[in-house]
Structure formats: C-alpha cells, structure tokens
C-alpha cells in the first residue's frame, strides 16, 4: 500500500504554489511536510485528499494512478478547523464522524479515551477549549480504517501531554501498516519518517 505523488504542480488563484513535486510514502511510514507559510503544505494535503485537482501530475496507489474518488476513499483528514458542533455533546460529535466513516458507535468511548477526553463525553462541545476541541477532532482517527492519514498542523493548540498522546496514536497507525502525511512546524519523532521540504528552492 504505497502512496506516491508524481510531478505535481499546484496553482491557486492563478499563482503557481509549487511545480514538479514528486514523493513516495511507503506503508507504515510517515512523510513530514515542512516549509514556510505559503509554500503549499496545505495545498498538497488538499490535493492528496482529492479536494484540489493538480494542475499537472498525478497521485498513485501502488503505482496505479488514482482518481479524486480513489483518493477520497482512502484518506482520513484533519484540517485546520475541528468539525465540532457546539450544540452536540463531545460523545455525539465523535459518534457522528465515526458512524459516517462506517464505524460502530460503540467505538466512541475507546476513541475518546485514546485522546484522554473520555471524562468530557457528556459535556456540550461548545464549552471545550481549543486544545480539547482539537483532541476531539483527532480521536475519530483511531476508530477509522483509512490507510492514509492526512494531517494539517495536528499539534496546534495541543499541550505537551496531548502531543505525546498524539504521537503515540500516530506511531500505532504506522506500526499497523498505515501511512501518514503530516504538515507540521514541530518535530514529530515518528519512525520511520521522511521529510519533504517545500518552498526551499526559492
């Protein structure tokens, strides 16, 4: 289950963000995206999730070119916003995304525990802090079966203990043969991992 990008070019609003980008992520390995603001880390993730069509180049699974639908079917996504509804409780929020992904709502408790927020289960999500909301967003990853996780700055708003918890969760995904692409500005000690620097040539 190797994921790769070949000769990718990204344009946004007529501006070329990057061109001719090629990378490989093996099963069980992490790819860390590094680079300054505007270098295209988020754009690359949006492309890999099938939201943004590449201006040139393509993605592939095990060497077979992937359509946008192929991409969507295999990813779990964590973007900038946390996709939580203030009117729902923490447990309801998590249960909805887990069930939408085809999971069983009985997995909700374990998912919440994986990010250490099971004690907040019955609180309305509207009262959570930014860090707790982020943990709520991350916890659904553990319950899903997607082979590729795409994470955009997953550590933002998280305290040290939660970052450690997140790293453990990511490492577990790798150990189970999953793949990761993470845009990050902090070091994530994941093994094995490779780093792709964007915007370095300019």
């Amino acid at each position: 289950m190797a994921f790769s990008g070949r000769n990718l070019t990204c344009t946004r609003g007529g501006r070329t963000v990057f061109r001719d980008l090629t990378f490989d992520v093996a099963a069980g390995a992490a790819l860390l995206l590094r680079g300054p603001n505007g270098s295209g880390k988020s754009s690359l993730l949006r492309m890999a999730a099938g939201f943004l069509p590449p201006a040139a180049g393509h993605f592939a699974w095990d060497g077979n070119p992937a359509t946008a639908d192929d991409l969507r079917a295999r990813v779990a996504w964590v973007g900038h916003a946390d996709a939580t509804k203030a009117a729902f409780t923490v447990a309801e929020n998590a249960a909805f995304w887990i069930r939408l992904g085809g999971g069983d709502s009985s997995a909700t408790g374990r998912a919440l525990a994986s990010m250490g927020i099971d004690h907040l289960a019955d609180l309305p999500a509207g009262v959570l802090s930014a860090g707790q909301r982020r943990r709520l967003n991350l916890c659904r990853l553990a319950a899903g079966a997607a082979p590729l996780w795409l994470l955009d700055e997953p550590t933002s708003s998280l305290d040290d203990a939660s970052v450690t918890g997140l790293i453990a969760m990511l490492q577990q995904h790798l150990d189970r043969g999953g793949a990761l692409v993470v845009a990050t500005h902090v070091d994530l000690p994941l093994r094995p991992s490779a780093t792709l620097s964007l915007g370095a040539s300019r």
Binding site: T11, P53, P54, A55, A56, G57, H58
Partner: peptide, 8 residues
C-alpha cells in the same frame, strides 16, 4: 489531468 497551460 488536462494541462491548463496549453490553453491559457
């Protein structure tokens, strides 16, 4: 993918 630059 269609190459946009060809028509641009």
């Amino acid at each position: 993918m269609v190459n946009l630059h060809r028509f641009a």
